[in-house]
Write a protein that binds this DNA or RNA. Structure first.
Lengths: 208, 208
DNA sequence: TAGACTTGTTCAATTTTTTAACAATCTTTT
DNA sequence: AAAAGATTGTTAAAAAATTGAACAAGTCTA
C-alpha cells in the first residue's frame, strides 16, 4: 500500500484504462459497462469497478460509464491535466530516441531542457528543445525548477547527477540507467525502466 | 505463482542480484554473506536466502556465498549461458537506439536480424546486423527460427506482425509498442516496456 | 577441539489481491 | 407512469503472495 492508501497495482493499471478508453473513443463509442470493458481488457468486471471506486463514483447504475467523461477523470487522477516540467539527462542514442519518441505532453510532462557532457551536442535542438551542457545544470534548475528528470546516462555518472538533482529539488525520476536510485530520500519517486532486466527475465521465461 | 512454481517477484529480483554480484566482483570481493548483501541491496537477509533457495544450495554455512560462483549460477538460471536468437522489428528512432544501446549478448540473446518497412533503411548495418525489408520476414524466420522478437513498431502495425511472428514460432516478445499482446497464446511469453505508462505512473506519484 | 558464523528451511503472520454477491438506483420499454 | 432490465458502488469473504523470525545443522577459523 501507498502513502495515498491506494495500492500500487491499482495505480499501475490506470494508464492501461486510460489507453483503452482512448481507443474506444476513437472507435466512436460513447458508453461502456464494466462487464464489456472487462472482456476487452482481460480483467474481471469486479476489479474494474473496484479500481475506479478508489477514486470516486464515475458510473451510473443501469447505464455504465461515459467513456469521454471517465477518461477525463482518469487523466485528472493521473495528473495529466497539469503537466510538470521535466528535463532529460544524457542525449546519447537512447536519450535522443526517447526525446523523439515519447510524447511527454500527453503523459503529464513538459520537456524544458536536455543536458549532455558532450560539447558537440550542445546547441542542437530536439523537438524544439535545446541541448545544454551538463555544467549549466545547476543554474538552469535553480531558474526553472524542474520537477522530474529522465535519466539516460551510464551507471557510473548516475549517482552524482542523481544526488545533485535531488538537492536541486527534483522529485521524480524516470530512470533508464542501471543505477539503483537510493530509496532513502523521502518524497522522491522513481520509475525504473531497465531494459537489461527485462531481457534477462524474458530469457528466464524462455529457458524454463 | 508461475508454471515453474516460482513466484514472479522472485524472478524479477534475479537480474538485480546478478547485477549486484557483478559489481562486487569488480570491487575485488570474492565472498559475501546474505546479511551483508542484504544491507547493500536494501532487502532482508532472509529474503535473499529464500530467493536463492528456490533454485538450489549455493552457499556454505559459516562462509556465505562465493560471489563468482553464485553469479555464474544465476546466469545459468536466467539462461544467459545459452543465448537465443532474436530479431528486432521496427528500426526507427527507438529501434535503432535499442539496437545500439543494449548489449544483447550479455543478456541471453543473440540479435540476428532487424526489419523495417522503410526501403531506405534496408541494407544499413547496425552493430554488424543488417536491416532487412519487412516483406522478407517470413522467409527469414523459416530459415533462422528466431526464438524472440523485440517490437519497436507503432501500435497499429503490432497486431498483424505479432500474429505473424507467433505463427512463425516466435516464443518471446520484448514489447515496446502500446499494443497489448493477447495473452491467450499458450507458451508465448511477453515482457512489456511501456514508457508512456511509466511516465503516467510517475505523474500520478508526483501529483499526490 | 571449541567458538563463531551463516546457511537452508520451516512455520507463522501479515499483507495484498482477487472474486463473489447484492442492495440501490438508473435506464429503457411499453 | 409503471415494470422490467441493467449495472453500479460497496461489502465481505476467499485466495494468493510476501515477509519475517527462528533455529538446527553444518562449516570455518583459530
Amino acid at each position: 500500500m501507498n502513502p495515498t492508501g491506494i495500492s500500487n497495482s491499482v495505480i499501475k493499471r490506470l494508464p492501461r484504462y486510460y489507453r483503452f478508453l482512448g481507443e474506444l473513443k476513437k472507435e466512436g463509442m460513447t458508453r461502456i459497462s464494466s462487464r464489456e470493458l472487462s472482456e476487452r481488457m482481460q480483467l474481471t468486471a469486479s476489479q474494474i469497478r473496484q479500481d475506479l471506486n478508489c477514486f470516486g463514483e464515475f458510473g451510473q447504475q443501469g447505464y455504465g460509464y461515459n467513456i469521454e467523461l471517465l477518461q477525463g477523470e482518469i487523466a485528472r487522477i493521473l495528473g495529466l491535466d497539469k503537466p510538470q516540467n521535466a528535463i532529460l539527462i544524457g542525449v546519447g542514442n537512447l536519450g535522443k530516441a526517447i526525446a523523439h519518441y515519447i510524447n511527454f505532453e500527453s503523459k503529464g510532462f513538459h520537456l524544458i531542457g536536455m543536458f549532455d557532457a558532450k560539447e558537440s551536442l550542445v546547441g542542437q535542438m530536439v523537438r524544439n528543445v535545446p541541448i545544454r551542457h551538463i555544467s549549466t545544470l545547476d543554474e538552469f534548475c535553480r531558474e526553472n525548477m524542474p520537477r522530474a528528470a529522465i535519466l539516460c546516462i551510464p551507471k557510473e555518472a548516475s549517482k552524482e547527477i542523481c544526488d545533485q538533482l535531488i538537492k536541486l529539488g527534483v522529485k521524480g525520476f524516470l530512470n533508464f540507467s542501471h543505477y539503483d536510485i537510493a530509496l532513502d530520500h523521502p518524497g522522491v519517486e522513481v520509475e525504473n525502466i531497465h531494459f537489461g532486466d527485462s531481457l534477462m527475465t524474458l530469457s528466464y521465461k524462455l529457458s524454463n
